[in-house]
C-alpha cells in the first residue's frame, strides 16, 4: 500500500495539523498503518470473518452502516435493469429474431442489439438526461426517495438509469434467446406437438419458449451481477446514492476500508446470486434435481 500516492494520512493530517511528523506517526499507529501490509490485510480479513467490516477512516462510521442503505439503491437499480434487459428487451427481441430467422427483422434485431452493446452505459445515461431535460424539463433529483416511502417518486428517478443500464445488458440476452429458441424448435418434441395439430403460436409459446427460456433465465441472473458493475458509473451520472458512488467517493478520499468493503460485499452478493440462479435453474428444469 506504500505505492499509493497521497495516502489518507497526509490528507487527514493536511487538514488537521499540518505536517507534524509526530502527529503523523501517531495517526499511522492509530489506524494500524505502521504495520506491514500483510499484517494489515490479515487483521482486516480476521475482522471481516467476524462480521466487522471496520470503520471508515474518514468519518469513523462503521462501514457496514455506510454500505447498508447504499446497497439497497444499487440492488434496486440493477434489478430493474435486469428486468428491462431480459423481459422488456432481450427475450422479445430474441423471439422476433428467431421467428424471422435470416429475414430482415432478424437483421434489424441483430444490428440494434450490436448498437446497444456498443454504447457506453454512462453516455447513454447522459443522453437520456439531455433528451428528457430538453423535452420534458426533467433533471436528476437531488435527494433520493426510497420506494417504500414514495413509490411513484422513486420510480421517476430510477426508471431512466435503469433503462440506460438495461440497454447495455440486452444484447447478449437477445442473442441467447434467439439461438436457444432456434435450437429448441428443431427438437423432436416440437415435431410431436405439431403432429397433434397444435398451432404455431401455441408451439412457440407453450412448448418452445418454456424450454428455451431455461438457459436465458440463467444468464439473465448472472447478467444481474454484471449490471451491478455498470451501476457504479450510472449512479455517478444520475447522482444516485448507491454503492458505486460510495466507492468513487471513498477512492477519491483514499478511504480504503470502505473501498475494500464495497468490493467484498458485492463479491459476496454475487456468490449468493449464483446460488440463487442455480436453484432457479433446478426449479425451471425438472430434469435437474438439487443435490445431485
Amino acid at each position: 500500500m506504500s505505492l499509493i500516492p497521497g495516502s489518507v494520512i497526509s490528507q487527514l493530517v493536511d487538514q488537521a495539523a499540518g505536517s507534524d511528523p509526530e502527529k503523523l506517526a501517531e495517526m499511522e499507529a492509530f489506524l494500524g498503518l505502521d504495520r506491514p501490509w500483510y499484517a494489515q490485510l490479515g487483521s482486516w480479513l480476521a475482522n471481516v470473518v467476524q462480521g466487522d467490516l471496520g470503520n471508515s477512516w474518514r468519518s469513523r462510521i462503521p462501514v457496514a452502516d455506510l454500505l447498508g442503505p447504499r446497497l439497497m439503491v444499487t440492488l434496486q437499480l440493477s434489478a430493474m435493469a435486469t428486468v428491462i434487459s431480459s423481459l422488456v428487451l432481450g427475450i422479445p427481441g430474441g423471439l422476433i429474431a428467431a421467428a424471422y430467422k435470416s429475414r430482415w427483422p432478424d437483421s434489424v434485431v441483430r444490428v440494434v442489439s450490436l448498437l446497444a452493446l456498443s454504447v457506453p452505459v454512462f453516455w447513454m445515461g447522459s443522453m437520456l438526461i439531455l433528451v428528457f431535460s430538453v423535452w420534458f424539463n426533467w433533471s436528476p433529483p437531488l435527494t433520493w426517495v426510497s420506494p417504500f416511502e414514495d413509490f411513484g417518486a422513486n420510480m421517476r428517478m430510477m426508471i431512466l438509469p435503469a433503462i440506460a443500464l438495461g440497454l447495455a445488458g440486452a444484447a447478449p440476452l437477445v442473442r441467447m434467446t434467439r439461438n436457444s429458441i432456434l435450437e429448441v424448435m428443431g427438437q423432436n418434441y416440437i415435431r410431436t406437438a405439431r403432429s397433434t395439430g397444435a398451432t404455431e403460436g401455441r408451439i412457440r409459446f407453450r412448448h418452445a419458449l418454456r424450454n428455451a427460456i431455461i438457459p436465458v433465465v440463467t444468464s439473465a441472473g448472472l447478467q444481474f451481477g454484471f449490471l451491478i458493475g455498470g451501476a457504479v458509473v450510472i449512479e455517478e451520472v444520475f447522482s444516485l446514492p448507491g454503492v458505486g458512488r460510495l466507492l468513487l467517493q471513498a477512492i477519491s478520499q483514499r478511504d480504503f476500508p470502505v473501498v475494500q468493503a464495497c468490493v467484498l460485499t458485492i463479491g459476496i452478493f454475487l456468490i449468493f446470486l449464483n446460488i440463487a440462479v442455480d436453484i432457479l435453474y433446478a426449479y425451471l428444469d425438472p430434469r435437474i434435481k438439487l443435490g445431485d
Binding site: L3, I4, P5, G6, G225, F226, L227, I228, G229, G230, V232, V233, G244, L247, L248, I251, F256, V259, C262, V263, I266, G267, L270, N274
Partner: peptide, 20 residues
C-alpha cells in the same frame, strides 16, 4: 475465477482507484 466473477467495471474502478 475470482477475477472473472467480479463485474468488470467495478473491478477496474477499484484497481485503478487504489493504484491512483
Amino acid at each position: 475465477d475470482v477475477v472473472f466473477s467480479l463485474p468488470a467495471l467495478l473491478l477496474a474502478v477499484a484497481i485503478a482507484g487504489v493504484l491512483g
